[in-house]
């Protein structure tokens, strides 16, 4: 039972991060390799707001999340907008460069110290006992719930929302979408904002659960295989991919060798690339578009 809970928590972490990769890729065909850094930045925002709004902890979390939404939009407006129409590789490398910039800036501002935002906000982390004597911490449970809410929200938004429909249209055919009067830049900026927002949400919840330092970037990178295994342009795929990767990882830790935990996601990824490069739910034509 505990095994299932462990898998579920890890899957939720990967899924919540992976949906950021998917959102941007689906809309603009750009792979955002700065996602891990943006996620970490969101968590550090919480450190900043936690000291500024020590009176009302909930406000601090909400403002930090909203700030990351704005940061994502701004990243598009001031940086990535200039890369539209350039080679895809150039755009991807721009995100790599952005990631390096953020890493440097984060250490400059917050130093390499370990932070504990939960203690700063004065919250506890009670443990919930589930049937079957499995246990889960409050924030891990919140993380699973956040993942469910975010994915549910995104499905509804993309299906029925006016802007969601525009995002899908822009992803399918930017030229046609623009001709129908859709403001592509606004759509892309929204995608970046949402992606950073969900990433930051994951970052904030992980930081609340177990603390924060600059190694969080690596977690963002580990979620990347999940997005790819599921198919880079499919949200449902990201969810399933996260579950597969998490199950493989937790299973290996439990039954084989904990040392392999870091390599397993990439082994699954290689296997997937050999068998079905476009991922479980990905669109096949993507391969030729790049």
């Amino acid at each position: 039972m505990q095994l299932a809970v462990n898998i579920l928590v890890l899957a939720a972490i990967y899924a919540l991060i992976a949906c950021g990769y998917v959102l941007i890729y689906r809309v603009s065909r750009v792979l955002n390799l700065a996602h891990g850094e943006l996620m970490m930045l969101g968590a550090y925002m919480l450190v900043a707001t936690a000291s500024a709004f020590s009176m009302s902890p909930v406000m601090a979390v909400v403002i930090a999340a909203l700030m990351s939404l704005a940061v994502g939009g701004m990243v598009y407006l001031f940086l990535m907008r200039r890369m539209t129409g350039e080679m895809v590789l150039a755009a991807v490398l721009t995100t790599v460069a952005l990631g390096i910039l953020i890493r440097g800036a984060v250490i400059l501002i917050w130093s390499a110290q370990q932070y504990h935002p939960r203690a700063m906000l004065g919250w506890g982390n009670p443990v919930i006992t589930l049937p079957g004597d499995a246990r889960i911490s409050l924030y891990a449970a919140l993380l699973i719930m956040a993942t469910v809410v975010v994915y549910g929200g995104l499905f509804l938004f993309l299906r029925f929302g006016r802007w969601g429909m525009r995002m899908r249209a822009a992803g399918q055919d930017p030229l046609l979408a623009a001709q129908r009067g859709i403001n592509l830049h606004a759509v892309f900026a929204l995608a970046w904002g949402l992606s950073t927002f969900t990433g930051a949400l994951a970052g904030i919840l992980i930081a609340l659960d177990s603390g924060l330092d600059s190694t969080m970037v690596m977690i963002g990178l580990k979620a990347f295989p999940a997005a790819l295994v599921g198919g880079l342009d499919s949200l449902a795929g990201a969810l399933l991919g996260a579950l597969i990767i998490a199950a493989a990882e937790v299973g290996v830790i439990r039954f084989i060798d904990p040392l392999l935990a870091d390599v397993v996601p990439f082994i699954v990824l290689i296997a997937m690339l050999v068998i079905r490069p476009w991922g479980l739910f990905g669109t096949r034509e993507e391969l030729d578009r790049v």
């Binding site: 460069a97 990631g99 800036a105 250490i107």
Partner: peptide, 8 residues
């Protein structure tokens, strides 16, 4: 850190 940021 400055190096990192400047390189980016």
């Amino acid at each position: 850190a400055v190096n990192y940021a400047a390189f980016g």
